[in-house]
Amino acid sequence: MKLKIGIIGCGGIANGKHMPSLSKINEVEMVAFCDIEIDKAQAAAEAFGSEGAKVYEDYKLLLEDKSIDVVHVCTPNSSHKTLTVDALDAGKHVMCEKPMAKTTEEAQAMIEAAERNNKKLTIGYQNRFRPDSQYLHKATQRGDLGDIYYGKAQAIRRRAVPTWGVFLDEEKQGGGPLIDIGTHALDLTLWMMNNYEPESVMGSTFHKLGKKENAANAWGSWDPNKFTVEDSAFGFIKMKNGTTIVLESSWALNSLDVDEAKCALSGTEGGADMKNGLNIHGEDFGTLYTKKIELENKGVDFYEGETVDEAEVEARSWIDSILNDTEPVVKPQEAMVITRILEGLYESAKTGKAVYFE
């Protein structure tokens, strides 16, 4: 038997990530599609649906279908909590796109719904499944870097503001680059450290370049009047054990030091960074060394090596966790800590004061 999947939200992230990845997994079939723009749901069903796939404009009708085992929530951030809780209460396992929610309270409600229904819940942090992330995680968990006490989470674009959908709408998204791409960099950093106990945060947000008209941008100029979120955000995060993390995120920054969903780590035995590939550095026999990790498997004429699609690996891992009744790689409790930190950084930016957690 195949797991039957329903897709709620048939926009960019569903078409660019979720549905293409699921379509490559033999053990699943997408049987239902829902979007408030019914044409998008119909197009998705035609492109990715099984024979007789159903199309809905109202997600509650999709959830009434008892044959559906799994739901993927691919909608704006403001709806994550409601859709996820309703799907879990309807007896479905849920993959919710990142970030988990706009607030910690919403994220907690999602976890409680998963627990009371004995269903699996995961969040779409696909960057954990990149080859460099997988390698570095194995190294950090083995103790190669020793006690990691400093980290840098980076998600900086020079000019790449998403101008479609609701990305620029603070009410629907909860924020700009911090909650959109900064969340990925923070997830990687915490995962490498295996540290989910924040003590305090201090944050700053800026709406500087977003006010410019006819600005250079990868996806065309944005409308300054619709740009209601920050264009850059930076944070200082202190964990309970003293570990410190600096978080940088921007869609538009006058900087050539750009990188997205990357982290750098410093520990007592060594360090690592993801700049221009994965580098691990340390000291042996009184001498410093730097190892550049080769992950592309090239080196043979006429063979470019195998490429890894992290979205496909993520989907495969998620489906396997359901079929084998194991924990998903991205645990909702971890994702909730990310939401808690991001919420604290936004609050700090508004008040100008540090936010302390209990």
Rank of each mutant, 00 (worst) to 15 (best):
K2A: 07
K2N: 09
I5F: 06
I5R: 00
G11N: 03
N15K: 14
K17N: 09
M19V: 03
L22V: 02
E27W: 05
E27R: 10
V31E: 10
V31Y: 10
V31P: 09
A32V: 03
F33Q: 00
D35T: 03
Q42L: 00
A43R: 02
A44C: 04
E46F: 00
A47L: 00
A47N: 03
A47Y: 04
F48G: 04
G49L: 02
S50G: 15
S50F: 12
K54V: 11
Y59R: 04
L62K: 01
L63V: 05
L63A: 02
E64R: 13
E64C: 12
E64A: 15
D69R: 06
T75K: 00
N77E: 04
S79F: 05
L83I: 06
T84D: 09
V85G: 04
L88W: 08
C96F: 07
E97W: 04
A101T: 03
T103Y: 01
Q108G: 05
Q108M: 08
M110L: 12
E112K: 15
E112N: 15
E112S: 14
K120E: 07
I123Q: 11
Y125C: 06
Y125F: 13
Y125I: 06
Q126V: 08
N127I: 02
R128W: 05
R130L: 13
H137C: 12
T140R: 14
D147N: 15
Q154P: 00
A160Y: 06
V161G: 11
P162C: 07
T163S: 08
V166G: 00
E170F: 01
K172Q: 09
G174Q: 01
G175R: 04
G176M: 06
P177T: 01
D180V: 02
G182C: 03
G182I: 03
A185I: 05
A185F: 05
L186K: 02
D187A: 00
W191E: 12
M192R: 12
M193Q: 15
N195K: 15
N195T: 09
Y196F: 03
E197I: 11
G203F: 06
G203P: 12
S204V: 13
K208N: 13
L209K: 08
K211F: 04
K212G: 02
E213V: 00
A218T: 08
W219M: 15
W219E: 15
W222M: 13
D223E: 14
N225I: 04
T228K: 01
S232E: 13
G235Y: 07
A252K: 14
A261M: 04
A261P: 08
C263A: 14
T268V: 10
E269G: 09
K275A: 14
N276W: 07
N276Q: 10
I280S: 02
D284S: 12
L288P: 10
E294I: 07
L295Y: 11
L295R: 10
G299D: 09
D301V: 01
S317L: 08
S317A: 13
I319C: 06
I319V: 13
D320L: 05
S321V: 06
N324F: 06
E327M: 11
V330P: 10
V330K: 09
P332N: 13
P332K: 12
T339E: 00
T339F: 02
E343L: 01
E343M: 04
G344W: 03
L345N: 10
E347S: 15
T351G: 03
T351A: 01
V355Q: 08
Y356M: 11
F357N: 07
E358Y: 03
